[in-house]
Design a protein around this nucleic acid. Structure first.
Ligand code: MG
Length: 232
DNA sequence: GCGACAG
DNA sequence: ATCTTGTCGC
């Protein structure tokens, strides 16, 4: 069996209940651990919405050292609820779990397009997904949701602490010289620095780590109904 | 009450 | 996120 996906609770909840659940689940996140190095297989997930309001979730597994794609799976369904800042996971997680359950390859690590514990109640989509899986998960956000930090560094590898309520909830990591940073935070079963180090390893040519970049591109193409080049 | 606000 | 052409900078 490649990846264990378990159902912990229903996702179609009223906002107030969803928020209470986030606070409850956040206490279960494990912010420590370090996946094998060198990294071998890394998965990336992302979603896109088509004109009819259907969410397309994609999982792409890449392999070191060049991070070429070795497996791709997807799932789609009508959007469960509208996008609400802080409740993103209740919109995308159900679909991503469906896609993840179809994965045959077991990744050493899962990178998510969105924050982990750098969230108002400590349970961004990467953390929420992580609690349903048995592999380390890392959140990689493209913009800030909560917290404060000093101006990002200008060189690849530079980082700044992302603080929230006196707690370091993430790192503002520069993955390319002179380019906007990404926000790295713990999803589950991994420490913050091990997470940042691995995100940097996967972000070889672009700002975003390859697995996420591919998942982003593929989900967008699925949402746009473009014809896909098949292979495997 | 006001402003902030992942994707 | 999504709607969309050109344009600025390396
Ligand atoms: Mg996305």
């Amino acid at each position: 069996m490649s990846l264990r996906v378990r159902h912990l609770h229903p996702f179609d909840l009223p906002p107030k209940d969803a928020m209470r659940l986030q606070t409850w689940l956040a206490a279960k996140v494990v912010a420590k651990g370090a996946p094998r190095r060198p990294l071998r297989r890394v998965a990336g997930v992302d979603c896109a919405v088509d004109r009819d309001g259907h969410v397309h979730g994609v999982v792409v597994v890449c392999e070191a050292p060049d991070w070429h794609v070795v497996e791709t799976v997807s799932a789609s369904a009508p959007a469960p609820m509208p996008y609400v800042p802080g409740l993103l996971s209740f919109r995308e997680t159900p679909i991503l779990l469906d896609a993840l359950a179809r994965l045959r390859t077991r990744p050493d690590l899962l990178l998510v397009d969105g924050h982990g514990i750098a969230h108002p109640r400590g349970l961004g989509i990467a953390a929420h997904l992580g609690l349903h899986l048995d592999v380390p998960v890392v959140g990689v956000g493209k913009s800030l949701l909560v917290g404060a930090h000093e101006k990002a560094g200008r060189h690849r590898g530079d980082w700044r602490a992302l603080m929230l309520k006196g707690r370091r909830v993430g790192l503002v990591l520069t993955t390319r010289d002179g380019v906007a940073p990404v926000y790295v935070s713990v999803g589950h079963r991994i420490g913050l620095f091990p997470a940042a180090r691995r995100v940097l390893e996967c972000a070889t040519k672009y700002r975003l780590p390859e697995p996420i970049r591919h998942a982003d591109a593929l989900s967008r193409r699925l949402a746009r109904g473009e014809t896909l080049a098949t292979r495997g």
